[in-house]
Write a protein that binds this DNA or RNA. Structure first.
Lengths: 133, 133
DNA sequence: CTATTTGCAAACGCTTTGCCTGATT
DNA sequence: AATCAGGCAAAGCGTTTGCAAATAG
């Protein structure tokens, strides 16, 4: 099938490093601005191309829950996310995946579930404080 | 705030009826084609405007999980969905919402979860059969 | 060397919006 | 009559892509 030998260009390396070193689930544009500090003449097209390549390689994860634009996660392991309804930021949720839920689907429906994506919504700690005023 | 008195135009009524009478979670374009059979000169802009209005009214639900375009659900009650990885169709999953999951987040993290959206992925019954070949 | 990747800019595709006319209450 | 909604077409906007030049292996 795909015999392409993935080259580790400095652009690709930088994008991956930036993504691994943040936990803010940034947008492509945020990554673009950030990488531009190191590689000033990099183009947005390169950011997108590499994000797609890295996702295919299984190095990162694409989150396209309820929003106009995608967010990217440097942690390719499946885990839960939380979106704050007030500030719209996305956080990692550190509770174990509920694998029984897949079993429930497999046992009670005709569908064959390999896994599931879950996003919680509500208020992040910061916005809970702000809402008290 | 919003003092607009929602008028029930024939366009809006038709769109809502079409959506209520399907369980395929269609795209805006699918709805457009469908409604056009009854109101031939309706415009795509009207479809989008009304889908947004109906969603605000709480009459329907917008699904923008992992895809370039949104899908719409005539059932505004929160429920689980299943996306087939092979044919990309979206189905309703008829198992009860796992509300304890929200509790787990509220008890074990600093986040305040009001709810969660979950999409399962795997193979639908049709595609399971096809995959046996 | 040569196939992959980049930068640039134009193209894409879904969705939104402005404007004016038409319909609803 | 007053205001909300529709039709049409253009604009928006995040993302993708074609192409020639650059570069990793």
């Amino acid at each position: 099938m795909n015999k392409s030998k993935t080259r580790m260009t400095k652009q690709r390396k930088t994008i991956l490093r930036v993504l691994r070193n943040t936990d803010t689930h940034p947008t492509a544009d945020w990554i673009y601005e950030r990488v531009k500090k190191e590689i000033p003449n990099i183009s947005l097209g390169t950011i997108y191309r590499n994000l797609n390549v890295l996702a295919e390689m299984g190095e990162i994860m694409v989150l396209d829950f309820g929003s106009t634009y995608s967010r990217f996660d440097g942690n390719p392991e499946n885990h839960y996310h939380f979106r704050c309804e007030r500030c719209d930021r996305v956080f990692d949720i550190d509770i174990p995946l509920n694998r029984e839920l897949n079993m429930k689907v497999n046992e009670n429906t005709p569908f064959m579930a390999f896994g599931h994506r879950t996003e919680f919504y509500g208020l992040c700690p910061d916005c809970q404080k702000k809402n008290q005023t």
